[in-house]
Computed example of a mutant assay.
Amino acid sequence: MNVLLVDDSRLARAELRHLLQAFPDVQIVGEARHAAEARTQLRQLQPDLLFLDIHMPGETGFELLATLDQAPHVIFTTAYDEYALRAFEVNALDYLLKPVQEMRLAAALEKARTKLAVQAVPELVGPGPTDEPAPTPLTAQDQVFVKDGERCWFVRLADIKLFEINGSYTQIYFDQHRPLIPRTLQHLEARLDPKVFFRANRQQIINLKWIAGIEPWFSNTLKIQLRDGPEVEVSRQQSVRFRELMSL
């Protein structure tokens, strides 16, 4: 498990590095003192896990995450307990208060191992052997089997208007149904046809065929209205990509 440490305190980074030595499967691939440095290292190193402070010079940890279209799993490390709810709203794996306790660190790392193991499974939905080659990309006309609890569907991808992160799962929008599947958006994005499905932001993938309207939004971003569905705010970087993709 490759890890990046982001904290403006050198002592805090040193203490966390010392604690992580007790976990032989963890490799610290880099350290960053602030958001700008972290953004560069995330792009270059592509770690599996990010230990992220909240209060740093310049941008906060939350502001850093808001600028990323894709991010590794995140464990917040902070001296402040009032941000815990917000941390889990951005799908953080855990929230560790400084000074970090080894037992809490071990529990957080176990959550990360579980998440990474789920991502390694190469199927869209449902269990299967992990030693097979990654399946070929799906077309919009392909049908997929979806199971949520005791309910099952066999649905065309063309009929799915939206994939959206919901806690540890991804929620699928089709007809009046909203089932949850244990897959990440990164996994789904790798299987979906990029001519039909577009990653709008860190939380959502939209079906371009279901767009009912587009309007300019804040800071040169876009807001997209889906037919019979919710509005989706496109991130700044993805708004640029969307304009390039859809322009003549």
Score class of each variant (00 low, 15 high):
3 V>P: 03
4 L>N: 01
4 L>T: 05
4 L>G: 06
5 L>Y: 03
7 D>Y: 02
7 D>L: 09
8 D>N: 12
10 R>P: 08
11 L>K: 00
11 L>D: 12
11 L>V: 12
14 A>L: 13
14 A>I: 04
15 E>S: 08
21 Q>H: 13
26 V>E: 07
33 R>L: 12
35 A>D: 07
38 A>N: 04
44 Q>K: 07
47 P>Y: 08
48 D>I: 06
49 L>V: 08
58 G>P: 06
59 E>K: 13
60 T>I: 07
60 T>Q: 07
66 A>G: 03
69 D>M: 00
73 H>A: 13
75 I>R: 02
82 E>Q: 14
85 L>H: 02
87 A>E: 01
88 F>H: 00
89 E>F: 02
92 A>N: 03
94 D>A: 07
98 K>T: 06
100 V>N: 01
103 M>H: 14
103 M>D: 15
103 M>L: 14
109 L>A: 04
111 K>W: 02
115 K>Y: 11
117 A>T: 11
119 Q>H: 14
120 A>Q: 14
122 P>G: 06
124 L>N: 05
125 V>A: 14
127 P>L: 03
129 P>Q: 07
129 P>K: 01
130 T>S: 10
131 D>Y: 11
132 E>N: 04
133 P>S: 02
133 P>E: 01
137 P>E: 04
141 Q>T: 15
142 D>V: 01
146 V>M: 01
147 K>I: 10
148 D>M: 00
152 C>I: 13
154 F>N: 12
157 L>N: 02
160 I>R: 03
163 F>S: 06
164 E>M: 10
169 Y>L: 10
170 T>G: 04
171 Q>K: 15
172 I>M: 15
173 Y>D: 13
174 F>Y: 06
176 Q>R: 15
178 R>L: 14
178 R>V: 05
179 P>Y: 08
180 L>D: 04
187 H>M: 14
187 H>T: 13
187 H>L: 15
187 H>Q: 15
189 E>F: 15
197 F>M: 10
199 R>Q: 09
199 R>N: 12
211 I>R: 03
212 A>C: 08
212 A>F: 10
216 P>N: 07
221 T>Y: 02
222 L>S: 04
224 I>T: 02
226 L>Q: 00
226 L>G: 02
226 L>W: 05
234 V>H: 08
235 S>R: 01
238 Q>W: 05
238 Q>D: 10
243 R>T: 11
